[in-house]
Design a binder for these strands. Structure first.
Lengths: 141, 141
DNA sequence: CTATATTGATTGCGATCTCAAGTATAGCTC
DNA sequence: GAGCTATACTTGAGATCGCAATCAATATAG
């Protein structure tokens, strides 16, 4: 129960702040961060989907938005014509570097401030035990 | 990060199991449980909405579904003509008593099994510290 | 080398949920 | 008791997301 409630309240607040200031959804941000820390700032769309726990169709639509905002671009794969890469554009890099600080501050305020450093570690460890279903653990959280 | 991922994976799996066996969403179940433990198995719709962190319109639509399935009924309030109560029907009580065991077993398997009793308490305590925004704490988790 | 299965990606459809607007009732102030 | 504000609820419009179907390209089997 607490888990569900905490998630609902937290994500709603975080997402609405992020949207108000940077016009990004929490998920948009999540996707941009994945790309930001990826090798060459690009990922196969399917891997991106798995790393943020979206379906393939979900990532297509989310990236549609980020592409039309110019934050992400497409790129063909030489060795496998099925795959397309999502690549962070210059504007995308800029965007995330702008948004990062305020978002981290929001997280700190709403989440981190409730816990001591030790408690954070413990919480992270406990949550990390939960099964992430069928997904590859591409998460660099 | 872990919090978001854990939530996404967990709720997806729990909800899909619940739907497969009992034709209930995780949220449906949540609402039914709130009613089940409420005084007279009825609640004002607005209080119900707040207790499960939905908006007023969200609860209207969710209850539409539960009403047409015959699990929940409407009832007028004598003292205030604005309010409507959501009341668990006989079928609703039966439904939740049927679904409860398998759902708790699912939770146990996917969530509880990862933790010792002490760790559960600690996790509950830590999560309980998170601010639930503007909501009244009607949660009897 | 051909048939079949698998994988990456997109699209139509339906479900869920929020926001904004609208209606009706209640309470408060003068 | 007239007017103003707040509350409970509903509805229309729009966003997001999953599922199933589909297509194209690749991998595997015989």
């Amino acid at each position: 129960m607490r888990f569900l409630r905490a998630h609902a309240a937290l994500t709603r607040e975080l997402s609405s702040r992020l949207e108000a200031v940077h016009e990004l959804t929490l998920r948009d941000f999540d996707v941009l961060v994945q790309l930001y820390y990826a090798e060459g700032r690009r990922m196969r769309r399917i891997d991106l989907a798995r790393s943020v726990l979206l379906t393939a169709s979900g990532i297509t639509r989310l990236l549609d938005g980020l592409e039309s905002s110019g934050l992400v671009g497409k790129e063909r794969c030489e060795s496998d014509a099925r795959v397309t890469y999502a690549v962070l554009t210059k504007a995308g890099v800029k965007k995330i570097e702008e948004a990062r600080d305020s978002h981290l501050a929001d997280i700190e305020e709403l989440f981190g401030a409730q816990f001591s450093p030790q408690e954070r570690d413990q919480l992270a460890e406990l949550l990390g035990r939960l099964p992430l279903a069928h997904t590859s653990e591409a998460c660099s959280g």
